[in-house]
């Protein structure tokens, strides 16, 4: 195995991770704290998978803040290619440079000139590798990207180096902390998974969810937060098209505070159900099952 670039761990223990994440407002459980710690110490990318709205992207942001690093984000989408993810030559500027050179200049000079730093457009992956300061690289919604992008990620994330034919190989001086997120709309390739540490983020247990709601919406009374979390859990137990996630719990708490609702009774739930359930059929089902009319 090639010697890896020196990586200075950002955290000293899982408890350290938990405390520092908590200081930024992110409440991690044992699994999250330990896995983040391991990803940092072992220098491996962290693949976070789970339903939408459970705080996957938030985790990357919280780690960035806790480690006093800079976040570089690569948002994946269908059709994302190397030119958008890694680097691209600035065609227009090169064209201008050639036209501006006129007839006097030799081709060799122009050639060397237009393939230099100045004309290179660094995209997120290259940016993250070239940075000297602590960096968190967030590859968001990896499952939305095409399979070829996974190959590219594999190459970049295993050696943390990028070869630009005209410039040579660029190697990371300080390896970034890499977080990949996925909603599991498709299975990522085995090869990519093998190289990552895996963290499945599900809906939290009642106690942690309550703590999160209280943390994010401090104005909400504790008793109301407790009621809210229990009601959300009851909704999750129904067969719904889209179960409410933590993001919805927080939105709900904010709504209740804004409306000045103190207790969550039938009327209050019926009135604000649209914040939590986004499908008409899900709402109809909840109304029926919970006896809201």
């Amino acid at each position: 195995m090639t010697t890896r670039e020196p990586h200075v761990p950002m955290f000293s223990s899982p408890d350290d991770v938990r405390d520092r994440l908590a200081a930024t407002g992110y409440l991690a459980d044992d699994a999250i704290a330990t896995t983040v710690f391991l990803a940092d110490v072992l220098g491996k990318p962290l693949l976070v998978e789970g339903p939408a709205g459970t705080g996957k992207t938030e985790l990357a942001k919280a780690v960035t803040e806790a480690a006093d690093a800079t976040l570089v984000r690569l948002q994946c989408y269908e059709g994302l290619d190397e030119a958008r993810a890694l680097y691209e030559w600035n065609y227009r500027k090169q064209l201008l440079r050639i036209q501006a050179a006129g007839d006097g200049q030799k081709w060799e000079e122009t050639h060397d000139d237009i393939f230099s730093e100045e004309f290179l457009l660094a995209r997120p992956l290259l940016t993250a590798i070239r940075r000297d300061d602590p960096t968190v690289l967030l590859v968001d919604e990896t499952d939305k990207a095409d399979v070829e992008v996974e190959g590219l990620l594999l190459e970049v994330l295993s050696d943390f180096q990028v070869t630009v034919p005209e410039l040579g190989t660029i190697t990371a001086t300080n390896r970034p902390f890499v977080v990949l997120t996925s909603n599991a709309t498709r299975e990522l390739s085995e090869a990519l998974k093998r190289r990552c540490l895996f963290l499945h983020m599900d809906y939290p247990d009642a106690e942690r969810e309550k703590a999160i709601v209280l943390r994010r919406v401090p104005e909400v009374p504790e008793a109301l937060a407790e009621q809210l979390v229990r009601t959300i859990r009851t909704l999750r137990a129904l067969e719904l098209k889209k179960s409410p996630s933590i993001a919805e719990s927080i939105d709900w708490a904010r709504t209740l505070v804004a409306l000045g609702i103190e207790t969550l009774d039938e009327a209050a739930v019926g009135q604000t159900l649209g914040v939590v359930l986004k499908h008409a059929s899900d709402q109809a089902r909840a109304v029926k099952e919970l006896g809201l009319n």
Partner: peptide, 16 residues
Amino acid sequence: RRQLRAAYAASVVKRA
């Protein structure tokens, strides 16, 4: 034990 479980889960369980 909780750390040990998380460590194992992160390294060997790659599908929910």
